[in-house]
């Protein structure tokens, strides 16, 4: 092994590929606004992203943010006011905005670090074996990642070998689906009993689901694209080194000097 580089572009660990890549700061800020923590997950800051999502679910539930949102979107402002818990709502608001701010700021800095890392051009790892896992940089189809995450959020992350996040997301999707009774409602919808479908739904837990599904689809899609770029870059590094001493000359003899 060579000495570790100062600014590596990617590492392989048991948990998958962790990489610097070019971030769109507006998209990162937007996903933080959709679900605090999602912006940090896009920045490959998986642990703090996970902790932020946990605190989002807990504090949102205590403050009744989702119920207040539903009442507000429906124009029932008096009910929105009465359902909110001031004890939790103010702190929720502050941490919500700070999560957006912090992810936006980090994305700007990660872009600079990525720029420096790509100029350093240190060798990118391509395959590592661990006692419990095999992790490698692989090419994948973005559409497959989208389809997996759309059918069951978290499975797109599994497709990208990010299994820790995958099972975390799968677990929470089960929690949302069972507490909101979304699958029962879907069944009633499919057999045409619309009013029954609406009756069984639990609004607080249902309202997490569009954000989580959207975030999971976007994260798996973006990760697939970035892994594909990393694969191409690693292969380019490897081939450039391996065929450096090529003696192929397309014009030889007298033609070469002209």
């Amino acid at each position: 092994m060579k000495s570790p580089s100062r600014r590596p572009m990617a590492v392989l660990s048991t948990f998958g590929v962790t990489q610097l890549h070019r971030q769109n700061p507006y998209m990162v800020a937007w996903w933080s606004a959709v679900f605090p923590g999602f912006g940090h997950l896009l920045l490959n800051q998986y642990l703090r992203g996970t902790l932020l999502t946990l605190s989002e679910v807990i504090i949102n539930t205590l403050a009744h943010i989702n119920e207040a949102m539903i009442y507000s979107f429906c124009g029932q402002f008096e009910q929105a006011k009465s359902v909110l818990e001031p004890r939790w709502a103010f702190g929720y608001l502050l941490t919500y905005l700070i999560a957006i701010w912090d992810s936006y700021r980090s994305s700007l800095n990660q872009n600079k670090l990525f720029h420096l890392a790509s100029m350093e051009n240190e060798p990118i790892p391509s395959l590592r074996l661990f006692s419990a896992e095999i992790q490698y940089v692989e090419q994948r189809r973005p559409l497959t990642a989208i389809a997996f995450s759309f059918l069951f959020p978290g499975t797109g992350q599994l497709y990208n070998h990010r299994f820790g996040l995958a099972f975390y997301a799968i677990f929470w999707w089960w929690v949302y689906a069972s507490l909101s009774h979304a699958y029962e409602a879907l069944m009633y919808l499919l057999i045409g009993q619309l009013s029954k479908a609406n009756q069984v739904l639990h609004p607080h837990w249902l309202l997490f689901m569009p954000s989580v599904m959207g975030g999971s689809v976007y994260h798996s899609y973006l990760t697939t694209l970035e892994h594909n770029k990393l694969f191409a870059l690693e292969q380019r590094q490897h081939l450039t080194g391996r065929y450096r001493s090529s003696e192929v000359r397309l014009l030889d003899g007298a033609g070469a000097g002209s």
Partner: peptide
């Protein structure tokens, strides 16, 4: 899509077609 889905699901609670 994600932003509008949250609004669509919320307003669906008072609309005849429902949140899903």
């Amino acid at each position: 899509a994600t932003g509008l889905a949250v609004i669509g699901a919320s307003t669906g609670f008072i609309a005849p077609w429902g949140p899903i």
